[in-house]
Design a protein around this nucleic acid. Structure first.
Lengths: 200, 200
DNA sequence: CGGTTGATGGTATGGTTGTACCACAAAAAC
DNA sequence: GTTTTTGTGGTACAACCATACCATCAACCG
């Protein structure tokens, strides 16, 4: 046998090719061939590492969901604090607003997957439910902490506000994707809304 | 020639078949054949009335966008008032939350179209931008009216709040579609948020 | 050193899709 | 009453797609 190759690396390489291919012309238009070409390998190799297209799509979805988690955690880390609820919450929510081309592509594919998973039984949507639920708890906890610290209005229902926040961020992100709003507008609106929850 | 048929009626019939077909297994899986079968006509007829698949999809999208407008107007009319801003706003926003199977199918296809229009140049997204912009103005106006009438907090920025409201409603609707939340939960959260804008 | 096994390329195949083409019947036009 | 025109069916076709199959080549195993 030649070279004795690192399977995980090869798989990652192919998945990245799929994501690039999907970013430019939509998830619905990716084919074994387009992925192979984008990855610079033969179709046979894509088959070799993923067997079927369904499994390839599934693997890409899993990778995407994982990357979403990383992105959010990275943003939170970038705030450099674990004690400023407003900063942390803002960081989490702003991740949903696509700014540069890279994040736009990311969120586009993510959304395409989410919508696809509604009708495609093979893509049962676990990854798309686990993450938001986790975020909901996360936001609720930090909101409650802010209330205890006196920086957020104590009359608020922390959990319901957390759900509202997630919905606002998802809705704004979507409207940016659809070209209805600019990323700057969306950011401004989100910050406006946060300032109402965190007066002063 | 036989029968001399009403073209618009035939077209509507076929488009409805497309929407039914898309509702059950996703917009991506509709084909000329599946539409023809669902409509109970031959493939040739679908071609005859729409020439190409692209035009069929486009016509269905247009019809869908128009129907969205009707739905919202109908809801507003059903409130039976033109002077109660809270009632009117709540009616508009609740339309985005799919309750029964019919509205679920409607919003699913609508969302699939919206996402598809991002990558498919043939489906340039005008219909998906006009309606929300109109709604934004509508909500802004009614919010401002409520502020003048003293039922809404006068410190609010009516336009930004309108954008937030649209985003919340879109986000909640999407989360219901994805199966993350029940329609009841979404409704509760939306009403909670509205009660914060309209105290008392 | 011989053979087994991992990695890869190439190609064939069966199915599906959108669309073009051909035929025909029946109503309208003249 | 002949000739258009309009609606409709059936079918053929070229493209494309996912996948199965066949072949090859090189490394490691014994």
């Amino acid at each position: 046998m030649p070279k004795l190759v690192d399977h995980e690396e090869r798989r990652a390489h192919i998945i990245d090719a799929l994501l690039r291919s999907a970013a430019s012309s939509g998830l619905h238009s990716v084919t074994m061939r387009s992925v192979a070409i984008e990855a610079g390998v033969s179709v046979r190799l894509v088959q070799y590492y993923f067997d079927t297209k369904e499994q390839l799509l599934l693997a890409a979805m899993t990778r995407l969901a994982a990357r979403m988690g990383e992105r959010v955690r990275q943003r939170v880390r970038a705030t450099g604090t674990t004690t400023d609820p407003l900063g942390i919450i803002e960081a989490v929510l702003l991740e949903a607003v696509p700014t540069d081309e890279e994040s736009r592509a990311f969120h586009l594919i993510y959304t395409e997957y989410a919508v696809l998973s509604v009708t495609d039984p093979a893509l049962a949507g676990q990854p798309f439910l686990a993450a938001p639920n986790e975020m909901e708890n996360f936001l609720t906890a930090h909101l409650a902490a802010a209330q205890r610290a006196g920086t957020a209005d104590p009359h608020l229902d922390a959990r319901q506000e957390a759900v509202v926040l997630l919905a606002v961020s998802a809705g704004l992100g979507l409207s940016v994707l659809l070209g209805q709003r600019s990323a700057e507008e969306a950011t401004t609106v989100l910050q406006y809304h946060l300032r109402r929850l965190f007066p002063g």
